[in-house]
């Protein structure tokens, strides 16, 4: 009641002003004008993108969002595809026994010269000794 009265006295308060209305109508019609994509194209694009992504991850089909947006003369495809889980065959952390290990006896022996311990930083000294 009070709000209505205020809106009548101060049109600036009214979000339904003809200025706001024309802006909303324009934004909607321009988003459509600016993209030359037909609804059919968008639908088949959506299907193909989902196919590819679904090869790697399970998606939450109910929470998916797929739409064209238009800001500053650039039309972009905005897709929100919530991932439920990665498909098991693509797990990056493998379980035990999955990677091959070289047996210890096949590895080259590692020797140590006790007297040289402490010379670690002296790379230049080492070079002098060798020459």
């Amino acid at each position: 009641m009070l709000i209505e009265l205020l809106e009548k006295i101060f049109p600036a308060l009214n979000d339904r002003s003809s200025r706001q209305e024309v802006k909303n109508r324009l934004k909607l019609i321009l988003a459509h004008d600016r993209s030359d994509l037909t609804p059919q194209m968008i639908e088949s694009m959506r299907r193909e993108i989902l196919e590819v992504v679904s090869k790697y991850v399970d998606l939450d089909a109910d929470a998916m969002d797929f739409a064209l947006e238009n800001t500053s003369r650039v039309t972009s495809l905005v897709a929100n595809l919530p991932i439920l889980r990665v498909k098991p065959e693509f797990y990056t952390v493998k379980g035990k026994g999955m990677s091959k290990e070289t047996p210890v006896e096949d590895l080259p022996e590692i020797s140590i010269d006790e007297s040289a311990i402490g010379d670690l930083q002296g790379t230049s000294d080492l070079r002098n000794e060798n020459s």
Binding site: P11, N14, S17, S18, R19, Q20, K23, K27
Partner: peptide
Amino acid sequence: VAVNDMMSVDDVTEILA
């Protein structure tokens, strides 16, 4: 524009970019 019955300069430039 002042009484919100016409798009302002900013409104139009924002849309046409």
